[in-house]
């Protein structure tokens, strides 16, 4: 089976006094390509992080492929997480490791400690070739043995994508995959993620600030505003008015945001 379904069921997330998400329910079926849009602070990152079990919801449940994420045992949670690739806004690579090591680290969730030691310190030829192949696919094959923090922001982002792919995931989650690159590359990165998810039939959920890109590459868009879902529709039925509603500045909001 390729692709995995994702489900949020009345989920609320609270950070101290801030409500990041409030009673959010949605269901994404296997192989869907979904865009998350919404103003800054609307809860996009929080929603994505819920989906791989790195934020604990105060209410509600998260299901991945039918399993309730937060009731799984540690071992089962590891297994589910191993099938979910996450491309972070800030990359989250280990800065002083080689690019190849960061990519190979994508598979840690699938191997024992002993095997992972060998894999990280003395990777087999097959491993390195596979990492190289994926890096070529994201366009930076020649950086295989460079130190990761010597790469530019855009290149590091590609390493992050390569790490997620090396994981051989069923689901790809991407948080603002375009924030650290110039507009032309932004399009490349989104294109790349969409192409890969189509080729391998992966479920793809990405948050995007760029509405044109969101419309062009996603088949379904979910609009978030102040932690609530404003719309959730196929891209074809999305109108300009949906977006203006989403980014409308509400009463007192300017003040609240400025504070």
């Amino acid at each position: 089976m390729k692709g995995t379904s994702l489900e949020l069921d009345g989920v609320s997330v609270q950070y101290g006094n801030t409500t990041a998400l409030e009673a959010v329910s949605l269901s994404i079926s296997a192989g869907e390509r979904v865009g998350l849009v919404g103003p800054s602070g609307s809860g996009k990152t929080t929603l994505l992080r819920l989906l791989n079990g790195s934020v604990l919801p105060d209410q509600g449940d998260v299901h991945v492929s039918g399993s309730p994420l937060y009731t799984l045992s540690r071992t089962d949670l590891r297994r589910v997480r191993a099938s979910i690739g996450f491309v972070y806004q800030d990359h989250r690579l280990v800065p002083n490791l080689q690019v190849s090591q960061n990519v190979i680290a994508g598979q840690l969730g699938r191997v024992s400690l002993l095997k992972s030691l060998r894999m990280m310190l003395f990777p087999s030829r097959v491993m390195v070739e596979k990492a190289h192949e994926i890096l070529c696919r994201v366009g930076i094959g020649e950086k295989l043995f460079e130190r990761t923090d010597h790469l530019s922001g855009g290149q590091q982002q590609r390493v992050a994508i390569a790490r997620a792919l090396f994981q051989e995931p069923q689901v790809l989650l991407a948080d603002e995959p375009v924030s650290s690159v110039d507009p032309a590359r932004a399009k490349d990165a989104v294109e790349l993620l969409t192409r890969i998810s189509r080729e391998e039939n992966l479920t793809l959920v990405m948050s995007l600030h760029n509405l044109d890109l969101a419309r062009e590459y996603c088949e379904r868009l979910i609009g978030l505003r102040r932690g609530r879902i404003v719309f959730d529709e196929p891209t074809s039925s999305i109108q300009e008015s949906h977006f203006s509603e989403l980014y409308r500045i509400g009463e007192g909001e300017m003040l609240a945001d400025g504070a």
């Binding site: 590891r78 997480r81 191993a82 979910i84 996450f86 972070y88 690579l93 680290a105 840690l108 969730g109």
Partner: peptide
């Protein structure tokens, strides 16, 4: 990030 990808 690694934790989120299933690492122990």
């Amino acid at each position: 990030a690694l934790r989120g990808a299933g690492a122990s």
